[in-house]
Design a protein around this nucleic acid. Structure first.
Lengths: 325, 325
DNA sequence: TTGTACGCGTTATCAA
DNA sequence: TTGATAACGCGTACAA
């Protein structure tokens, strides 16, 4: 692979000159500029970004740590993050933590060794202390680590409220809610808080089921659903904390021959594309995933440039009514 | 961020010594080794991989170019690729081409500038010539560019045959097939060839619908499905070239009040997780996505090390019967 | 067992 | 308008 020296030699100029035309800095005569461009084409020269990054102390790489890209929510998030990063001249290094604290820590160290310009954290299995000691531009998705570390989330409380209220308004009186592990300090837990509040306001005894969520384990979902319906056959409303879980609920209803939405109504969360693939298509709470991705990238870039930035972004959610309510 | 010099100074040794304990090379006394490790901890030293890569001419980064991670097949592929890469000490740079030739070319150049050790190409919008001129370890998924460039695919012909034969065996006589754009030279086209062959063997007039696939456009899928059922209300069997398309078929059947599997049977392709989320769960042709990812990473590493390697991997597919047939 | 000095490919500084 | 040189952080040949 050709280096700047090769170009310089072939174009019979100094490396400085080549560097100049490359970065369009300082004065260069039209003649030399053209000559240099010419030889760059000839040699198919691609400047070595590793050397550039080393010198500039800036790699233009952003690390993205998420539980697993195979999960639709994170897949869509990753897609948008990648797109906004690319539009701003950044590349994405993809890391799936599988919610394993060891792996998450190793990934963080790996990213630091590679001198990424910032880290977008969508996985949160470590202690607050560890994130604080990072000393790197960082932004978290759906978890507030501390006052200093910016976070992005959508309005989880409002989302939970919208979902719960919809079920109540539609006449449900035996309502279940399936959430993730509430031990983890995730902002998503506010959905459950909102659900509780709405149930209390309406004097409905809530049924709340925690999933492990430590692995997006689909077998687990199936089991939980079948147990739920076995133990509470009278359920007429269900609010699931993800569209995928809601899909399994739909599936279980089919098995149990409970008609949707006549006998039971179901509300999902996220509004990933999959919510619209399944039959009947899911009523759900839409998170602005593209916006979350955009703001995450933007926040990293602002931190790098010491530009002013918000430390909390709480984006709006929206109820999307489809066929399960 | 601490450098090797900082560590050396604080440990009162030379940088060489630090480098030695870091890479575990040559002789070092236990005493100095411990002392160095100690100060590395104290300074929270992370060796600069950019500098290392520059020197070793090896970045341990693999570029992954796919149409879009938001599509379940590529999301799962990316997840497995990332995992195998990580297990072998490699990182993944994620690129979504959106099947745009300009973007794909820019990504290839970007990856070369960043001196990635290899490129896994899951997006194929360029001319054969351009791929041949890459001079970099490369492996393609589901497209054969030339004799020299290794490719990985699953047995598309067999997959198509299994799907078509199943529908025939189950008694379907009016069978439709929805495939991608056959103009692109993808190996996936063999599914359609197999479908044609099976239909001919059984003297069934095939109905074949091409989708644009240039964007995984879900609105397009909805339109195609509704037109298909309007024009051919007699259809009793459908083979879709992806599980997502099959999901939309299921949805349309519900709208048209066609019962699955009694009145119409549907077979998908890929066996992504989503095939099992929808109701009824999809009969589909399983591609070994994890294996494809593993072989892709392995192929890149072999090419780097000039180890012997296959130039064609055609992995086995499997019929997974669920509730739509 | 440890240290000195050079080179990896670039860019910035200074000089011509 | 152009060129020589130092430096970025690291690994290795060679010397001690």
């Amino acid at each position: 692979m050709a280096t700047i020296h090769d170009v310089a030699k072939m174009a019979k100029v100094s490396v400085t000159t080549v560097s100049r035309v490359l970065n369009n800095r300082g004065y260069i005569s039209e003649t030399t500029r053209n000559k240099v461009f010419q030889t760059m084409k000839e040699l198919n020269y691609q400047p070595n970004e590793l050397a550039r990054s080393l010198l500039r102390k800036q790699s233009n790489v952003i690390g993205l740590i998420i539980p697993n890209v195979a999960h639709p929510f994170f897949a869509e998030l990753a897609s948008h993050v990648e797109r906004y990063a690319y539009e701003n001249g950044y590349k994405i290094m993809l890391c799936n933590s599988h919610l394993d604290p060891v792996k998450e820590k190793e990934y963080i160290d790996m990213l630091k060794r590679n001198r990424v310009d910032g880290i977008i954290m969508g996985s949160h299995t470590l202690e607050v202390k560890e994130y604080k000691e990072l000393h790197s531009p960082i932004v978290t998705i759906d978890r507030q680590i501390s006052e200093e570390i910016p976070f992005i989330s959508s309005d989880n409380y409002e989302g939970g409220r919208l979902a719960a209220q919809l079920l109540v308004d539609k006449g449900c009186r035996k309502i279940a809610h399936i959430c993730g592990n509430l031990e983890l300090q995730l902002l998503a837990n506010q959905r459950t808080a909102a659900f509780r509040d709405v149930m209390a306001e309406n004097e409905i005894e809530p049924i709340i089921i925690q999933t492990d969520m430590n692995v997006f384990d689909e077998q687990q979902y199936e089991q939980i659903m079948s147990r739920l319906f076995a133990e509470h056959p009278e359920i007429d409303g269900l609010f699931a904390t993800s569209d995928i879980i809601a899909s399994f609920a739909v599936k279980e209803c089919r098995k149990a021959d409970k008609h949707i939405p006549e006998q039971i109504k179901i509300v999902g969360y996220d509004d990933v594309s999959a919510a619209n693939w399944i039959t009947p298509s899911l009523t759900t709470i839409r998170q602005p995933i593209a916006e979350i991705g955009r703001v995450a990238v933007d926040s990293i870039i602002r931190q790098m440039n010491n530009e002013p930035l918000e430390h909390r972004y709480v984006l709006e959610v929206e109820l999307v009514e489809r066929l399960t309510t």
